[in-house]
Computed example of a mutant assay.
Amino acid sequence: MQNFLTRLIGRAVNAPSRPEGAAPPEAKASRVGPLVALYQMGKPVWTPRDYGALAREGFQRNAVVHRCVRLIAEAAASVPWLAYDGRRELDDHPLLALLARPNPREAGAAFLESVYGHLQVAGNAYLEVVALDGEPRELFALRPDRMRVVPGADGWPEAFDYTIGGGTVRFRQDEPLPPILHLSLFNPVDDHYGLSPMEAAATALDIHNAAGAWNKALLDNAARPSGALVYAGPQGTNLTDAQFERLKAELDDQFQGAANAGRPLLLDGGLDWKQLSLSPKDMDFIEAKAAAAREIALAFGVPPLMLGLPGDSTYANFAEANRAFWRQAVIPLVKRTAQSVAQWLGPAYRPGLTLIPDLDGIEALSSEREALWRRVAAADFLDRDEKRAATGYGAAKR
């Protein structure tokens, strides 16, 4: 069997080139396809990451991650989309109406917010279309942790398995309108699943969460580091069991917890307090937590200034940081999502249909538009139509 696979792989990799003048093959295919197919063997590929752990430790329990995901998802979902047939803008189109009301339970902004949120938390997002007579009627955002990729004979996804409540639904992708659109962020080490920004910032996330847990434990223990009570009584004597239990109970009741912070500890009978742990200042604890927070924001592409993190002076002011956030984190995400949705659903309506984000509808970029309009208006060597084209508008109607 091994020799057979070796010969098969050798023929796939070292296939002879087409003789000069010979007709090209009728179907195009990747030369590495047979290798990918052998590697995957046509079975469901399970994601190597724990989406639930990322969601719990990151989005649910970390304020920096939570705010980064919400900022990106809400900002991206607020960008309106425009439909074009070639270069002609379509003022009214069924696809725009579907995106505005994707299903009976969600409005367009809420639906897109779920899609972008899944992308930031899991690195993957899955959209399901419900069609009637080949026309898309409803859209749903499915949870990434319940979806599995099923590679086909060529190694690329031929179906998706969605598992919930002990049951599995298979969505085959060989239909005229594929029922599932898989959006993923770039992952250099996985053929099928995207890489979440949270995974890139996993170390910083653990440090930030551990710092918060340490703070909480410090407050629960009278807001002071732990230490030891040393018995220095007469030589050869120790505390009796009754004395030890009484002392332990007294410490728990009278000196543990934030409400008892600062209460003096009265020692008698040869007892002496010895501090064991380092102070927060010695550990440089606060700065380590702030550095971890900035690293998390860096992984998501959110300027730390927008999160109110201390010690960051990269941007001159909040408006500059906000523009950088939109240009570097939000707009590229919206553009690639709009292109994917148009490529997926566009053929169901008409060839050449495209979706483009309406950047003029972004309030944060209004100052850039005003500056552009002033420069174009001052260009006397341009006529009216040229000025309209320079600002992204078509020729004026005659």
Score class of each variant (00 low, 15 high):
Ile9Gln: 14
Phe285Ser: 10
Leu278Ala: 14
Ile180Ser: 03
Leu195Gly: 03
Ala321Leu: 07
Leu372Thr: 03
Leu278Pro: 07
Arg67His: 10
Gly236Phe: 08
Glu158Tyr: 15
Gln40Asp: 01
Leu298Trp: 10
Ala377Gly: 15
Ala77Leu: 08
Glu295Ile: 05
Ala83Phe: 05
Ala204Ile: 06
Met306Tyr: 01
Leu239Met: 06
Val149Ala: 01
Trp156Met: 06
Asn14Ala: 02
Tyr84Pro: 12
Thr337Gly: 05
Ser114Arg: 05
Glu370Pro: 05
Asp360Cys: 00
Val64Lys: 02
Leu298Gln: 07
Ser226Val: 14
Ala324Trp: 04
Leu119Met: 09
Pro34Asn: 10
Ala97Thr: 15
Ser367Thr: 14
Ala100Gln: 14
Ala200Gly: 10
Gly227Leu: 12
Gln256Phe: 13
Ala293Gln: 12
Glu138Asn: 13
Thr237Asp: 09
Glu57Lys: 08
Ala75Leu: 05
Pro225Arg: 11
Asp385Ala: 13
Tyr116His: 03
Asp358His: 01
Leu305Asp: 11
Ala232Thr: 11
Leu219Ile: 07
Thr391Glu: 06
His66Leu: 07
Ala297Met: 04
Arg336Ser: 15
Trp326Asp: 00
Tyr349Asn: 14
Ala395Arg: 07
Ala228Asn: 03
Pro19Gln: 05
Leu265Ser: 01
Ala141Pro: 03
Thr337Phe: 01
Ile164Arg: 15
Pro188Arg: 15
Gly155Asp: 00
Leu298Arg: 13
Ala232Glu: 05
Gly165Asn: 14
Glu199Gly: 01
Asp383Gly: 12
Val115Ala: 04
Glu128Trp: 07
Ala364Met: 02
Leu71Trp: 06
Met283Trp: 09
Ala110Met: 09
Gly42Thr: 09
